[in-house]
Amino acid sequence: MSQSADAGTRAVLDEAGRRAGLDVAGAELVRLGENALYRLPGGIIARITRAGQAAAAAREVAVARWLEASQVPAVRVWSGVEQPVAVDGRAVTWWRELPPHRPGTAYQVATALRRLHDLPPPAGIDIGRLDPFVRLTERIDRAVTLDEADRRWMRRHLEELEARYLELPPGLPECVVHGDAWIGNVVSTADGEVVLLDLERCSIGPPEWDLVSTAVKALTIAGITREDYEVFVQAYGHDVTAWAGFTTMRDIREFRMTCMAAQVAAENPARQDEVVLRLACLRGERGPRPWPWQPVP
């Protein structure tokens, strides 16, 4: 996000803090990305969504409370505050700050997903069904650093992926899925506790959607070794790459990563080269995987 976006989120934070009765005067910006995160005095993290995400924020709070009641380590909501707080179309939620932590290993991601997938769906909470295409049309429309020919190609590719998703072969039984289960969203604290983060896409869906993120990490961008991926498979007990629907799930995940890069580039044009690279890879212009994709915020 730009400096103007920073100022905009700060104004939202100030108003949300006033309504919630929380002191945000000493708030420190932690990250500006898909969401804006601020650290408040007293161990509170404020999370500010983009516009139109109030329902997802409310679901994230409900899921976090359910996981806490189920004794599954995950981010915890700050109690005693009404959540979410809506300000100018954006949703603000309040969370307990995690102790020092680091990204989870492939083994830790696998065991955390196994624990989540084994839970019965929550009673009394409508967490909805997985939508692997959520917000992609919006991200394409806002990819202003791309020309219209590129955006047309992305829209056609999205339609193709949506059609392929409807034709997926049978797989594992549906369950509660995290929805965005890449290694950065599963962290390990200093005492060894493995914690789930970013619960806004939790829903009912095929567990393969969670598993494919680690497969893409290993096979598409070589972010972990193949040996790490084998550890992941053994720990979870299933290899999603052996499933007939894997290539469809992989292609959707890769396209989501590309659309995210396009969104980032629209706010930070210095990331434009990464978008161009990813599009060329998806079009088959950069040879076989793995591809040299670099992280974007």
Rank of each mutant, 00 (worst) to 15 (best):
A218H: 05
E138V: 08
L279S: 03
R18D: 09
R253D: 01
G17M: 07
L277Q: 07
P170S: 08
G128H: 04
I45K: 07
R152G: 06
E227L: 12
L196R: 00
P290T: 10
Q83R: 02
D6E: 02
I224W: 00
L13Q: 00
C259T: 15
W291T: 09
R289I: 12
R152K: 10
M154K: 12
P122I: 03
A20R: 01
G128T: 08
L146D: 02
L29A: 13
P297G: 08
A5D: 13
R18S: 10
E160H: 11
V72E: 04
R31W: 02
P207L: 08
Y236C: 00
P99V: 13
G245A: 08
S79A: 15
E208G: 14
A266P: 02
T137A: 14
C259E: 03
Y236L: 00
Q83N: 10
R289G: 05
R139P: 11
L196E: 01
R129D: 09
A91F: 05
A69L: 07
G287M: 04
E208L: 12
I44N: 01
F133I: 08
E174G: 15
T214F: 05
I204H: 14
E274K: 10
G192P: 05
F255Y: 15
A190Q: 12
A56G: 13
E208A: 15
A7L: 12
A218E: 08
E285I: 04
R39Q: 11
D126R: 12
R283W: 05
W182K: 06
D198Y: 04
A36T: 15
I127R: 07
D147F: 03
C259F: 01
G128N: 08
E174V: 13
R39H: 15
T93Y: 04
E208S: 14
T189S: 14
L282Y: 02
G17T: 06
D228V: 03
T248I: 10
A106M: 04
D131L: 06
L197N: 11
R278V: 01
R115V: 14
P207E: 02
G8Q: 11
L40H: 08
A86M: 06
V187F: 03
V296Q: 04
G237W: 13
T189Y: 01
A244N: 08
T137Q: 11
P169H: 07
V233W: 01
I125A: 06
G8H: 11
L166E: 11
R164D: 11
L166G: 15
Q263C: 06
F232D: 03
D180E: 09
D147R: 07
W78S: 00
L130N: 15
R201I: 03
E230C: 07
C175Q: 14
M260V: 14
V12T: 14
L277G: 01
A11N: 02
A112M: 09
A110D: 09
W243K: 04
